[in-house]
């Protein structure tokens, strides 16, 4: 019984670590893309399509990993 509880706890901790890890990776990607768009905007004045593309990629990451848009389609499941 105790071993089963320990296993469940370990599994929960592993899931929590993975969720935290995803948050960190997405944040690093967002920062890298922001720095990228800053340089694109400074160097290539008048080039707006790469900036739109970067903004769309950033928004997609936030929608998927921070706003969890997929939860809308999993009506009766747990949040995490």
């Amino acid at each position: 019984m105790e071993a089963q509880n320990n296993n469940e706890l370990n599994e929960l901790n592993a899931k929590k670590k993975a969720a935290y890890g995803t948050g960190i990776v997405v944040f690093i990607l967002l920062i890298a893309l922001t720095i990228g768009e800053y340089f694109v905007g400074s160097i290539a004045i008048g080039w707006s399509w790469p900036l739109w593309l970067i903004a769309l990629i950033k928004a997609a990451f936030i929608l998927r990993d921070y706003m969890h848009v997929n939860r809308l389609f999993s009506w009766n499941e747990e949040s995490e």
Partner: peptide, 21 residues
Amino acid sequence: VYWHFVDVVWVFFYPALYLMG
């Protein structure tokens, strides 16, 4: 979700106001 939405809006406003053109 609301907070991240406000962030998504800025993701488009930042380049539109500061970088494009």
